[in-house]
Nucleic acid binder design. Sequence first.
DNA 1: CCAAGAATAGTCCGAAACAGACCGTCTGCA
DNA 2: TGCAGACGGTCTGTTTCGGACTATTCTTGG
Lengths: 191, 191
Amino acid sequence: MAEDDATTSAAGQLTPVSYLVLGLVARHGAATPYDLKSFVAQSIGNFWSFPHAQLYKEPPRLAELGLLAEEREEHGRRRRTFRITEAGRAALSAWLAEPDTSLGELRAPGLLKLAFAELGKPGDVEALASAQAAAHRARLKTYRSYTAMSADVMPWSLRRTLELGIAYEQMQVEFWERLLADCATGQHTRR
Amino acid sequence: MAEDDATTSAAGQLTPVSYLVLGLVARHGAATPYDLKSFVAQSIGNFWSFPHAQLYKEPPRLAELGLLAEEREEHGRRRRTFRITEAGRAALSAWLAEPDTSLGELRAPGLLKLAFAELGKPGDVEALASAQAAAHRARLKTYRSYTAMSADVMPWSLRRTLELGIAYEQMQVEFWERLLADCATGQHTRR
DNA sequence: CCAAGAATAGTCCGAAACAGACCGTCTGCA
DNA sequence: TGCAGACGGTCTGTTTCGGACTATTCTTGG
């Protein structure tokens, strides 16, 4: 397999983190790992946590694959700045072009606890539901405050993901509040 | 710290998987790792994937901590059967009793792709939205078929988590269908 | 002006998680 | 009776994960 087709040859080794990095670098023109860390923290990181160590490890790896170009300060903080290459842009485009049918995961500790609520003491569910509702309400509020951002810092695609985040949190709040209400009326063991 | 308080001493080393195993064993009285694997596959595994290797590794670990009791066939398939101990029941109760405020994660590859959609070709988003909507509709249908199950195999707590699953998938379907509709009318780049 | 502390920027490591290959055992039924 | 498919389990090599740790630069108030 020749190296002149980065799209094909590298695709197998690219993970979600890879595309996250490629996408962020492409969007911003150039970025240091630290920049990536910040971008992630205020966007996708809300849904999907990426340990920052990964955001430092991934760019050099992508550079080796020829998808990014690296340039490093010699002195001071020795920042590493990355830019996307043509091959990188191609790999990103190819990924964006293939529609994804995978469903992802919903790793919610509260949900796991609820699944075994029947084994706990009577009051436990109420407390859980109440805590969860509050936590999700808080996050919903945060998300809503983001909607005020201007289009410059928030491309439409990002705004769309924010909308999903809002819809998700709203659903969670409704779910836990409904559960709480049913607990109050003794409905929860029936149905 | 004395060993006579398993609740306190073991709590630090217990992960979500631990409680999943404790809970399943408690619910069913006794279980082999293989049973756990099956239980997980048809319930929580839909939201949160646990590699089966973990469900084989965790029970012996919990047995060492005194939270499970192990008993093994000497011949044939050499099944390992686990039962919950008093200490295990206590640890589980303690976990259920503390309300959880963590929000969990939403690891959805489609969402990641959407976040960078602005960098792709015009038709890409439609294809993605269409594929995602279809996938979530399919899962929604599966979940709905589960609601027919009797209360024997489906305790109320599990039924509740199923309800959340349904609400979640419904929200996803609506989100992607709305996006698709907006694409058709050229709305997506504005807003 | 300068010291303290906050924010910036990056490295490193051990412990888990993870995916999946692989291997025996048993049951039903053709 | 033989074999397909479900059962039941072990193992291994990578990645991921979380967090501790270091060093540089900026800010601010005394």
